[in-house]
Computed example of a mutant assay.
Amino acid sequence: MSTLPRPGRVEWIGLRPARGVAMREVESAEAAVGAGLAGDRYKGGSGKRDVTLLQAEHLPVIAALAGHDAVAPATLRRNLMVSGIPLVALKGRRFRIGEVVLEGTVPCDPCSRMEDALGPGGFNAMRGHGGLCARIVSGGTLRVGDAVVPLAEEGA
């Protein structure tokens, strides 16, 4: 269960400056313990949702289920889109992205806003494909192109 085939990669980073406004695509973001990502509206939250991650490989599935040719990462309002590593395997585990250590906390379930973003049935199109929430364990800079690397589990 702890062995993964290879590291993943950050493909896209987005910040949500405020509720209901367009996401801002960036090449890098500063992550701070207890403060989330600088420029993101969720900064300083509960800690379970400091950063939200989405599986790049799920974008075509979500698009197909919602009846679209494609879906842009910003439409789904997650902070990081990563490829090459199964996010579900990071739930309850620590992992490194660039300088930052994160811990996968809970699934990032879709919200009712997906009905507006994707059209009728958008919420259900995302069910099971919403990604992962994570808390920041150790801060630093995240960049597009950074590797997503699981850390060795304690006692393993």
Rank of each mutant, 00 (worst) to 15 (best):
L132C: 00
Y42T: 00
G45N: 04
A56Q: 08
A29S: 10
E103Q: 14
A64V: 05
L53K: 01
L59M: 06
L151G: 06
A63F: 02
G140Q: 11
Q55M: 01
D109K: 08
T105S: 14
L87N: 12
G8T: 01
Q55L: 01
V101E: 09
R9I: 00
V51K: 09
A22S: 14
P150G: 01
P5N: 01
P60G: 13
E154M: 07
A66D: 06
V61C: 07
V33Y: 06
G128N: 11
V148H: 00
R49M: 04
A74E: 15
V100H: 00
D146N: 12
G131W: 01
M126S: 10
V61R: 14
T75N: 01
M23N: 03
P107M: 05
A64N: 10
R143I: 10
R143A: 15
G155P: 02
L54S: 00
P73Y: 11
T75P: 03
A29I: 06
T141H: 05
R9N: 01
V137H: 05
A38V: 13
A29M: 09
G84T: 11
A89S: 15
V33E: 14
S112W: 10
R41K: 13
R6K: 13
G139I: 08
A152V: 11
E25V: 13
D50N: 09
G84M: 12
G104N: 07
C133M: 14
C111W: 10
E115P: 06
P150V: 01
V100M: 02
G130E: 02
N124W: 12
V137R: 07
V26Y: 12
T141Q: 14
N79K: 09
G36P: 05
A56K: 09
G84C: 12
D50G: 05
E27V: 07
P110T: 03
D40V: 02
V33M: 08
G45Y: 03
E115C: 12
T141S: 08
S138R: 13
A152G: 11
A22H: 09
E99H: 04
A18D: 14
T105N: 00
R49C: 03
L142N: 03
C111G: 07
G140W: 10
R96E: 08
K43I: 00
V21T: 15
G104M: 04
P120E: 15
G145Q: 11
G119H: 06
L151C: 07
V26F: 13
G20E: 12
S2A: 05
Q55E: 12
A35E: 14
E11H: 01
D146W: 04
Q55A: 02
G39E: 04
I62V: 15
C133T: 12
G98N: 09
L59I: 04
S83G: 15
K43Y: 03
G145F: 12
A18T: 03
I97L: 13
P60F: 10
G98L: 11
P60I: 11
S138T: 08
D116N: 12
H129Y: 15
